[in-house]
């Protein structure tokens, strides 16, 4: 079986190169194939991995243009493996996720205050059980088209995390969370649903963002693009001058 891997040896060497490898494994995960290449053929191949069981989020990458976890994807002959998008490439299949991770803090994705003794029913718990399955692999972040036009977008996983806390009965100040996601947040999403399609945990950030929009509207916020396109709802008028 042959697979092709997009190689890039880091800043010291500028050119990128697609290299083909042949391995004799069958019915193997991509991570098993990468390990085989690294330990037996080419020790310079770089990628991240950890748990092998789709829970640590380390081995996210793209195969044939689609985000996958290498440990959960069964390799097929002719597959083309590339690093994730929207994050600076460090080397080979490794990207720098620091900036992506920082959006969790920018979106204030945490419970505002510590609250003891709140009784959650099974229904309460089910409200955000799925969202708290997130493994921060960054697949949704890589596939998101918004970063092509706005690199300050809080992004799918951070907004899902915000929904996780806002929907939680233990959160005592949901309003402050809603306030924090108005700029570069819920309204910048195009609702293209790509994030949903690549999530290995079956989470739909798009749906979570829609729910956050409804909560935002209920709190008196409105879609700023809607406001601008119709001129005078308290935003800027057509010529850009402030309107009152």
């Amino acid at each position: 079986m042959k697979i092709k891997i997009a190689r890039y040896m880091g800043k010291e060497v500028t050119q990128k190169e697609d290299i083909e490898y042949e391995v004799s494994l069958s019915d193997a995960t991509l991570l098993e194939v990468l390990n085989e290449i690294k330990t037996k053929q080419d020790a310079t191949l770089s990628y991240s991995s950890g748990c092998r069981s789709s829970i640590c989020g380390s081995c996210s990458m793209r195969v044939n243009g689609r985000e996958v976890l290498a440990c959960a994807y069964k390799v097929k002959d002719g597959d083309f493996v590339e690093p994730m998008k929207n994050s600076p490439l460090i080397r080979d299949l490794v990207v720098d996720m620091d900036r992506a991770y920082e959006f969790n803090a920018k979106a204030k994705a945490w419970q505002s205050s510590i609250k003891k003794g709140v009784r959650l029913s099974q229904e309460n718990q089910m409200l955000n059980e799925l969202q708290s399955d997130c493994i921060l692999c960054g697949s949704c972040y890589s596939v998101c088209p918004v970063y092509a036009v706005n690199d300050e977008f809080l992004g799918p996983f951070a907004l899902t995390r915000v929904w996780k806390y806002i929907s939680d009965k233990r959160e005592s100040e949901p309003q402050s969370k809603i306030d924090a996601i108005q700029t570069n947040g819920v309204w910048d999403c195009t609702l293209c649903n790509e994030c949903t399609l690549v999530c290995p945990q079956g989470i739909s950030s798009k749906t979570d963002i829609e729910k956050l929009r409804i909560r935002s509207v209920a709190s008196g916020y409105s879609d700023p693009s809607f406001a601008t396109s119709f001129g005078s709802f308290g935003g800027a008028s057509f010529d850009g001058s402030p309107s009152f």
Binding site: W110, Q111, I114, K116, R119, N124, K164, D168
Partner: peptide, 18 residues
Amino acid sequence: VEWLDSIGVCFSRTKDAK
């Protein structure tokens, strides 16, 4: 466990909300 619960860990619940 109470502390983990207080900072937002999504523990599974019983029918009587424990």
